[in-house]
């Protein structure tokens, strides 16, 4: 679809805006609807659009697959790590109140960190799932199931 000028131009216009919106949803999720889950899916949908139009190869050059795998694990690590840090600082697992000088600041910091972890994992995992499907070769056997048989 790389040759279609309309798709290419519209995608180039849209993709930065979608990514910007994903970042807004991620970091403004404390005050308005949104959060890590939604932001991760929106971010990955921007990159999936890029893959659909410019091809899987070009998409993999934007964020190489090893980095995606690293990000997916990093998100879980960031989430669980926040819990471990709160334990080390004298609180309970995932009790963010001890993270800063006042409990409210600590809670806020903890929520932002945890949502960031969720965002990393969700966006990277969605991209990895799409890549796994899209990188699969088409079924080569000639089948009759493609036709209507009535």
């Amino acid at each position: 679809m790389k040759d279609n000028i309309i798709l290419r131009i519209v995608a180039k216009l849209l993709i930065p805006l979608v990514i910007l919106f994903a970042l807004y949803v991620q970091f403004h999720g404390d005050y308005s609807p949104g959060g890590g889950f939604q932001a991760g899916v929106i971010f990955s949908s921007a990159l999936i659009l890029y893959r659909l139009i410019f091809g899987l190869q070009a998409g993999n050059e934007v964020i190489p697959r090893p980095i995606l795998k690293l990000l997916a694990s990093l998100g879980v690590l960031l989430y669980a790590g926040t819990g471990v840090v709160t334990m080390l600082m004298g609180g309970e697992f995932l009790d963010y109140s001890v993270l800063a000088d006042t409990p409210i600041h600590g809670q806020h910091t903890g929520i932002i960190l945890v949502e960031l972890g969720v965002g990393f994992t969700v966006s990277a995992t969605m991209l990895l799932i799409f890549d796994a499907f899209a990188g699969r070769p088409l079924a080569t056997q000639n089948t009759t199931t493609g036709k209507r048989d009535d």
Partner: peptide
Amino acid sequence: NETGVPNMVTAVLASYRGFDTL
């Protein structure tokens, strides 16, 4: 008052029920 986050869904998701979300 407890988390400083106006969006209650985010507060419950990430703080009160943080272990679920993990």
